[in-house]
Nucleic acid binder design. Sequence first.
RNA 1: GGGCGCGUAGCUCAAUUGGCAGAGCAAGGGACUCUUAAUCCCUAGGUUCGGGGUUCGACUCCCCGCGCGCUCACCA
Length: 492
Amino acid sequence: MSEAERRARAERLAALRATGADPYPASIGAVMPLAGVRERWDALDAAALEATPERVAVAGRVMAIRSFGKLVFFTLRENGATLQLSFRKPELDPETLATLGLVDVGDFVRSEGVVWRTRTGELTVGATSVRVIAKCLHPLPEKWHGLVDVEARYRQRYLDLLVNEEARRIALVRSRTVTAMRSFLDGRDFLEVETPVLQPLYGGAAARPFTSRFEAYDQTVYLRVSDELYLKRLVIGGLDRVYEIGRDFRNEGVSRKHNPEFTMMECYQAYADYEDMMELVQAMVQHVVAGVMGGTRLVFREQEIEFGGVWPRVSIRDALLEKTGVDVLAAPDFATLRARVLEKGLDPGEAPTWGQLVDQLFSDHVEPTLVQPTFVTNHPVELSPLAKRSTEDPRLVERFELFVAGMELANAFSELNDPADQRARFDEQRLAAAAGDQDAHPLDEEFLLALEHGMPPTGGLGLGIDRLVIVLTDAQHIREVLLFPYMRPEGA
RNA sequence: GGGCGCGUAGCUCAAUUGGCAGAGCAAGGGACUCUUAAUCCCUAGGUUCGGGGUUCGACUCCCCGCGCGCUCACCA
């Protein structure tokens, strides 16, 4: 039983203390990283190591103990690297021998010894000392199967990271993805900024917010659903190229590609339009894929995805015409479009307006088919209240979405900078809200005041980091790429 | 929120129509100076998610609750 095992470990902890040792010391002295030990001695064979014996100090977590009576092996792990320790009991001093008997799998130890190679060729530190530098009071998950239980993996992610190599790999890819993205944007003279998470009014995306209470001011506040309206204020203020990487929060359902809090990269570039953002996002994702994965292609759910070259673009109208046979621009009002959809034997669903019906048709019939990187352009103005109207067709806007693996990865437009048009769009949103659209954008007078001071023509882009990492790691679920996905509390 | 499924030892999993809750790893004791899923012998380990019900008897069947998964809805 675990209680017995915990007690046994606690007793060994007490025994360690009884020897006068501190089982949780603050400082342990210099040690060489295990990867460094490997780097330095891996090329030498047993004879060469014996000819020039060198002492080294190492530290790490004990992942396995194999005892042969007078000879004991530890597998030590530190920062992703492993190294074997050996102890020849007859050669140890009494204190070291006593401490050795009090080490459990999971403990952190520090040892010193001479580097040698066993008969099986394993690089090993022949330890002559051992010191427990942090005690582990629980048994680790089983070494062969690892931790399988999904709930336990998320609730105790540290165990998942410890025993499941895949969890560690995803965490590394995610970190490197963000690093590569930063270096790309920094290289293009973008300035990294931070805007409020806690907002008196939310905006920038069609989404339901989380609400909270600011007690000191006795006011309702919202967790941001997007950074957009604040980043634009910075462009208005002359910070011509800005980006932010941060959490957005949307009070909506969860799915394998939706989590209530997720990480978004948004960037804005003055004197640019959506076509410039197309070039930017393509170069940025290619930079990330090359830097993190090496190369231009990867496999996602058994399909090869090629990130190299120039990505194709298709308008929403053309894509829908191809997949459904319906020309949405030739059906300019809701009733006509709905009739066409029914004629084709398709399900028009519950969509209440022309724009939302277009959106639904796209989600149902086009989105899942966009496996290779593809730009989809020219969205209905109704769905894009912050984007500049197309000069060719006032029903459409200068916007694109990037799809990969059937998922929207990025969204960009030529930003609407005409304050009169922006006010009109907010008014339309207000009507939509009155008609029951819970995701409509609220009117933001302060944002309009900023726009009235003049915003240069600007291209803006938002990219979902979690989704990009899903694609890069071939993850089955967005939770796999989040270190701590939301879990209901146990036994509530 | 709806539907379907799952919850057994610290971990990974068994348990026949409803009939004595088991194994491996981990743990405790012992043997072993080259293992790396070490091996061999012995031992211990359970509120079968929680509560209620049916029954001579419930891990198993029924009801309620909790948690998790899949899926639909909502939603970028």
